[in-house]
Simulated assay, not measured.
Amino acid sequence: MTSSFPTAANNLSTLYEQDYYLWLETTARLLQEGQLSVLDVANLLEEIEDMGRSEKRAVYSNLKILLIHLLKYSYQSEKRSSSWLASIVEHRQRLKKAFKESPSLQPYFTEIFNECYQDARELASAETGLEIERFPVETPFTPEETLDSDYLPD
């Protein structure tokens, strides 16, 4: 089977800069056809590495947002809203889906949990107008509670 896509590696490298989507299609087709020697390996490796970083950034972001809303839910009980609750549910779902699709991200979740909490603590203070000291330095939530669909802070 012959491809109608560009096949010279230097053309692929140029294509990467000029039309990213076409580069993706071409690279996928070349992989399907087993034309490995023609691949733009440098850019392909960069994209694969970036995909891993992107997955980690998504875990970090979802966890931080989840922790912010758990803090707000806990420390501003008089202002609890359905949007806070919806955000808690949504970001739990996103994290659970990420772990289902990529179980190897779970150790990363544990690794960044405390760092995320510190960022969430700072943002929760900014969003609520409460002094940062109002929020405990040590997280009041365990990683398990954070992901538990039935858990809400008192």
Rank of each mutant, 00 (worst) to 15 (best):
T2C: 05
F99M: 09
D154T: 04
T7G: 02
E133T: 10
L71S: 08
F135T: 10
F99I: 04
Y108L: 11
E78Q: 12
E101S: 09
E127P: 07
E131W: 07
L123K: 03
N11S: 10
L44N: 01
Y20A: 03
P140E: 10
L44R: 00
A124M: 03
S102G: 05
D119F: 00
S61P: 05
Y108G: 10
E33K: 13
S37N: 13
K64A: 13
S3C: 02
E78V: 11
H91K: 11
L45R: 09
K96S: 04
E133H: 07
S3Y: 03
L95R: 02
A9I: 00
E122Q: 01
S83W: 12
L12K: 04
L24H: 07
W23Q: 00
S77E: 14
T26A: 05
L105S: 10
R80Y: 12
S54N: 12
I112W: 07
V59W: 11
M1D: 08
I132W: 05
Q106S: 15
D50N: 14
S81E: 12
K97A: 10
E49D: 15
T14K: 08
P136C: 06
I65D: 08
L39W: 13
D150Y: 12
S82H: 09
M51I: 07
T27V: 06
R57S: 15
